Amino acid sequence: VTTYKLVINGKTLKGETTTKAVDAETAEKAFKQYANDNGVDGVWTYDDATKTFTVTEMV
């Protein structure tokens, strides 16, 4: 189990959260659900070296 981080660069919501998951795919599903629940829709990137997902909403 690995800890993954999500950085949110939203128009109205900004911040970070973490989740523990067995792999990046599982973490991504959890983060996308979290973003969807919070009304964040944007471009996703993932950095495997730092285990960090970033979602950026276009203005």
Rank of each mutant, 00 (worst) to 15 (best):
residue 41 D to V: 13
residue 44 W to V: 02
residue 21 A to M: 04
residue 1 V to T: 08
residue 11 K to N: 13
residue 48 D to T: 06
residue 57 E to K: 02
residue 12 T to I: 15
residue 23 D to S: 08
residue 42 G to W: 04
residue 3 T to M: 08
residue 3 T to Q: 12
residue 9 N to M: 14
residue 8 I to W: 15
residue 22 V to G: 11
residue 46 Y to I: 02
residue 45 T to S: 11
residue 18 T to M: 10
residue 7 V to M: 08
residue 46 Y to L: 02
residue 18 T to F: 11
residue 56 T to Q: 09
residue 1 V to C: 05
residue 18 T to Y: 14
residue 59 V to R: 03
residue 1 V to K: 10
residue 26 T to Y: 14
residue 52 T to D: 01
residue 18 T to V: 10
residue 40 V to N: 02
residue 5 K to S: 05
residue 16 E to K: 04
residue 34 Y to P: 00
residue 26 T to Q: 09
residue 21 A to H: 04
residue 56 T to I: 11
residue 50 T to P: 02
residue 29 K to L: 13
residue 28 E to N: 08
residue 23 D to M: 06
residue 22 V to A: 10
residue 51 K to I: 03
residue 48 D to F: 09
residue 33 Q to T: 10
residue 45 T to A: 12
residue 26 T to F: 09
residue 55 V to N: 01
residue 29 K to R: 12
residue 30 A to W: 15
residue 43 V to S: 08
residue 20 K to I: 13
residue 44 W to H: 01
residue 43 V to F: 14
residue 7 V to N: 05
residue 16 E to T: 06
residue 1 V to Q: 13
residue 21 A to L: 03
residue 36 N to S: 13
residue 7 V to C: 04
residue 57 E to C: 03
residue 55 V to I: 06
residue 14 K to P: 14
residue 19 T to R: 07
residue 28 E to W: 12
residue 40 V to S: 03
residue 31 F to V: 03
residue 6 L to I: 03
residue 24 A to P: 08
residue 56 T to K: 06
residue 9 N to I: 15
residue 21 A to T: 06
residue 21 A to E: 06
residue 11 K to C: 05
residue 19 T to Q: 09
residue 14 K to V: 09
residue 17 T to Q: 14
residue 57 E to H: 04
residue 31 F to H: 02
residue 39 G to P: 02
residue 29 K to G: 07
residue 10 G to Y: 15
residue 51 K to G: 05
residue 27 A to M: 01
residue 15 G to T: 15
residue 39 G to Y: 13
residue 53 F to S: 00
residue 41 D to N: 06
residue 29 K to E: 11
residue 57 E to P: 03
residue 42 G to S: 01
residue 32 K to E: 05
residue 41 D to L: 14
residue 56 T to L: 05
residue 12 T to W: 08
residue 4 Y to F: 12
residue 41 D to H: 07
residue 54 T to N: 04
residue 2 T to A: 11
residue 57 E to Q: 05
residue 33 Q to S: 13
residue 21 A to S: 09
residue 28 E to K: 15
residue 37 D to Y: 10
residue 42 G to I: 02
residue 18 T to I: 10
residue 57 E to D: 06
residue 26 T to W: 08
residue 13 L to V: 14
residue 10 G to I: 15
residue 41 D to I: 11
residue 56 T to P: 01
residue 7 V to I: 08
residue 27 A to R: 00
residue 2 T to C: 05
residue 51 K to E: 06
residue 52 T to M: 06
residue 12 T to S: 15
residue 12 T to F: 15
residue 33 Q to D: 10
residue 39 G to F: 14
residue 30 A to Q: 07
residue 3 T to A: 11
residue 19 T to A: 08
residue 20 K to V: 15
residue 14 K to S: 11
residue 59 V to K: 05
residue 23 D to N: 10
residue 6 L to Y: 01
residue 38 N to Y: 13
residue 7 V to W: 06
residue 45 T to W: 09
residue 48 D to E: 14
residue 50 T to C: 04
residue 51 K to D: 03
residue 10 G to M: 15
residue 13 L to Y: 09
residue 25 E to A: 13
residue 21 A to D: 03
residue 41 D to Q: 06
residue 16 E to H: 04
residue 29 K to F: 08
residue 24 A to F: 11
residue 43 V to W: 08
residue 12 T to D: 14
residue 50 T to D: 10
residue 49 A to N: 09
residue 59 V to T: 09
residue 35 A to C: 05
residue 52 T to W: 02
residue 8 I to V: 14
residue 15 G to L: 14
residue 56 T to D: 08
residue 17 T to P: 03
residue 14 K to I: 13
residue 28 E to L: 14
residue 38 N to T: 12
residue 17 T to E: 06
residue 38 N to F: 10
residue 33 Q to G: 09
residue 35 A to N: 08
residue 20 K to Q: 06
residue 59 V to M: 09
residue 6 L to F: 07
residue 16 E to S: 06
residue 9 N to R: 10
residue 34 Y to M: 06
residue 59 V to W: 09
residue 45 T to E: 10
residue 6 L to C: 11
residue 36 N to P: 02
residue 36 N to Q: 11
residue 42 G to C: 02
residue 45 T to C: 04
residue 22 V to I: 08
residue 37 D to G: 06
residue 27 A to H: 00
residue 39 G to A: 09
residue 53 F to D: 00
residue 20 K to C: 05
residue 22 V to D: 15
residue 43 V to Q: 08
residue 19 T to F: 08
residue 57 E to F: 04
residue 55 V to W: 02
residue 26 T to K: 08
residue 1 V to L: 09
residue 26 T to P: 02
residue 46 Y to G: 00
residue 22 V to S: 11
residue 53 F to N: 00
residue 44 W to M: 05
residue 25 E to I: 12
residue 40 V to Q: 03
residue 9 N to L: 14
residue 6 L to H: 00
residue 22 V to L: 06
residue 56 T to G: 03
residue 49 A to H: 12
residue 24 A to Y: 10
residue 42 G to Y: 02
residue 17 T to G: 07
residue 27 A to P: 01
residue 3 T to L: 12
residue 54 T to S: 05
residue 45 T to L: 09
residue 22 V to Q: 14
residue 4 Y to M: 01
residue 13 L to R: 02
residue 51 K to M: 08
residue 26 T to H: 13
residue 42 G to D: 01
residue 58 M to S: 10
residue 34 Y to C: 03
residue 6 L to A: 03
residue 46 Y to K: 01
residue 13 L to A: 04
residue 29 K to P: 02
residue 31 F to Y: 02
residue 24 A to H: 11
residue 49 A to R: 08
residue 33 Q to C: 05
residue 29 K to C: 04
residue 53 F to A: 01
residue 31 F to L: 08
residue 51 K to R: 15
residue 20 K to L: 10
residue 32 K to H: 10
residue 54 T to Q: 06
residue 25 E to V: 09
residue 38 N to D: 03
residue 15 G to V: 15
residue 24 A to T: 11
residue 29 K to H: 12
residue 13 L to Q: 05
residue 5 K to T: 14
residue 34 Y to A: 03
residue 31 F to R: 00
residue 17 T to W: 15
residue 19 T to W: 07
residue 47 D to Y: 05
residue 38 N to C: 05
residue 2 T to P: 15
residue 32 K to Q: 08
residue 5 K to A: 04
residue 17 T to F: 14
residue 59 V to N: 11
residue 14 K to C: 05
residue 6 L to D: 00
residue 33 Q to N: 12
residue 17 T to D: 04
residue 57 E to A: 04
residue 8 I to E: 01
residue 33 Q to W: 05
residue 18 T to P: 02
residue 21 A to F: 06
residue 2 T to V: 09
residue 25 E to T: 09
residue 32 K to W: 05
residue 2 T to L: 12
residue 28 E to T: 10
residue 58 M to E: 10
residue 48 D to R: 08
residue 38 N to K: 15
residue 24 A to Q: 12
residue 52 T to E: 06
residue 45 T to V: 07
residue 15 G to Y: 14
residue 40 V to T: 03
residue 17 T to M: 10
residue 1 V to W: 11
residue 10 G to F: 15
residue 23 D to Y: 07
residue 19 T to M: 12
residue 20 K to N: 13
residue 11 K to E: 15
residue 32 K to N: 06
residue 4 Y to T: 00
residue 45 T to Y: 07
